[in-house]
Design a protein around this nucleic acid. Structure first.
Ligand SMILES: NC(=O)c1ccc[n+]([C@@H]2O[C@H](COP(=O)([O-])OP(=O)(O)OC[C@H]3O[C@@H](n4cnc5c(N)ncnc54)[C@H](O)[C@@H]3O)[C@@H](O)[C@H]2O)c1
Ligand SMILES: NC(=O)c1ccc[n+]([C@@H]2O[C@H](COP(=O)([O-])OP(=O)(O)OC[C@H]3O[C@@H](n4cnc5c(N)ncnc54)[C@H](O)[C@@H]3O)[C@@H](O)[C@H]2O)c1
Lengths: 222, 222
DNA sequence: GGCCTAATGTGAAATATTGGACAACCCGGC
DNA sequence: GCCGGGTTGTCCAATATTTCACATTAGGCC
């Protein structure tokens, strides 16, 4: 029927958001396993670690191709490559960081951004005292110069770490500069044209989740 | 049939995780609207801002009670209180921060943790050079003293911001101390007893999502 | 007080996601 | 080359979630 394809990149019509989320988890777990020297893993074993159902994993992978070997399992190294390629993170994405405060600095110093393929190549702020400062080897640039710099540095993704009341303005600059996607750490919804992809990061959501789950447990009926 | 209950806290049997996620978004948006002086909002208007379906919002709220006024909409202040109460964040949760590196410091300095109800009352690290240091008014304590301190300070939630290879150890300390929930920022899955709630925070998942969505768009078929 | 408008709360239909079962098939041993 | 154990890929049933449609009801106006 169909040929065996070691590392395919076949796309099904629509992929659930939840699948993408889980694929990111699988990569994380697989990279840790690889570091520990494991070479092959079954969907059942991976499922136990990720606390999901084994067929869930196989189904998630099936959206993109056939990466396993029947009777054996998945070769971890190959699987990591295959998932990364499927997600579009088998390459480097140039990013602009807008807003150099506590969080922006923590991100800049975080080497893993680069190793995971998100390379911060431009650092912007509007505070005249910060402009010109060198951080992690990068000069802080005035955010008005975003349009010019985004083109020059071939930036595709903008990271917003300004205070919330400034986030929309930062987004506007990024949109004007022709950015393709925005990762917004400020706790505000942004309004951007339809062709720009926005992801909101808010770890208070995670705190809320824990609080809620604890509260539920402590309810009379468990 | 049923009485009108201004701020109820009625629980349906099972609430989708996605609903909790969205409720957190609603709170964020509502608090911004409140700050701008808006007092009443309809599900339709809120839905537009959050980019969801209006009946989705009404259904999400219906899990917990009836918070709106027919023909009018929702009184924002009341709705915020109602959602917070429903999620279990209408109170303060005492938290322990384990691991005082780049990210840990950024969190400590972030005043919003407190205003959102998550109060970091204990700061722990295993590095002898960091123990004793004062950060944001808090003394860094040796993580071996977690058991003792968690009881003393009435801590219920642990925040892990250690390097990934140390995260499991930090989790073990927290579990031994009788913590109820863990928010783990290290990119590793943890193994903890069934009665401890764990939430994983990894903003690379958000970066992956953006990358994936951009990649999809640029595919031949759009 | 009754009527009209507007927006909620909700049951039922549509859709999406997950889990279970099993045929297909790889690999090593004989 | 064939056989048996083991694990994938996939179809289908079960379940969960989202959306629709509308009856219901609050509030303002006459
Ligand atoms: N610090 C944390 O741990 C943390 C956690 C969660 C969310 N956040 C969110 O991340 C954002 C940043 O937090 P922070 O603690 O780093 O704040 P911060 O005040 O330390 O830093 C904000 C930076 O943005 C710059 N800025 C303001 N307006 C700008 C503009 N228009 N263009 C470019 N730069 C601009 C400021 O000059 C400043 O350097 C906030 O929205 C905050 O709510 C922070
Ligand atoms: N910095 C970021 O922006 C960022 C972003 C995403 C994820 N993370 C993750 O967050 C974690 C922390 O990142 P970081 O940049 O702050 O790292 P870091 O190395 O700056 O800090 C880690 C801290 O943990 C302490 N520590 C180590 N083992 C410990 C133990 N057993 N008990 C208590 N403390 C211990 C260390 O002494 C150090 O102070 C990492 O797992 C990282 O992958 C960081």
């Amino acid at each position: 029927m169909h040929r065996y394809t070691p590392v395919a990149h076949i796309k099904s019509e629509h992929i659930p958001r939840a699948t993408i989320q889980r694929l990111a988890v699988y990569v994380q777990v697989l990279e840790n396993l690889k570091r520990d020297g494991t070479e092959v893993i079954s969907s059942e074993h991976l499922a136990r670690i990720c606390a999901v159902n084994p067929s869930q994993i196989r189904k998630d992978l099936a959206y993109f191709g056939e990466f396993g070997v029947r009777g054996v399992g998945y070769y971890i190294e190959d699987l990591i490559s295959a998932i990364k390629k499927s997600l579009g993170v088998d390459r480097t994405w140039n990013c602009a960081l807008v807003g150099v405060g506590n969080l922006g600095r923590a991100l800049l110093r975080h080497k893993e951004c680069r190793t995971r393929g998100f390379n911060i190549v431009g650092v912007f702020d509007c505070d005249p005292f910060k402009i010109g400062e060198i951080l992690a080897g990068q000069e802080v640039i005035c955010s008005r110069r975003l349009v010019e710099k985004v083109k020059e540095l071939d930036i595709e993704i903008g990271i917003i770490t300004t205070p919330p009341e400034r986030a929309q303005r930062a987004a506007n600059y990024l949109v004007d500069a022709g950015i393709k996607g925005i990762v917004n750490f400020a706790p505000t919804r942004l309004s951007v044209p339809e062709e720009v992809e926005v992801e909101y990061v808010d770890f208070f959501h995670n705190f809320f989740n824990v609080a809620f789950k604890i509260t539920l447990r402590e309810l009379p009926n468990g």
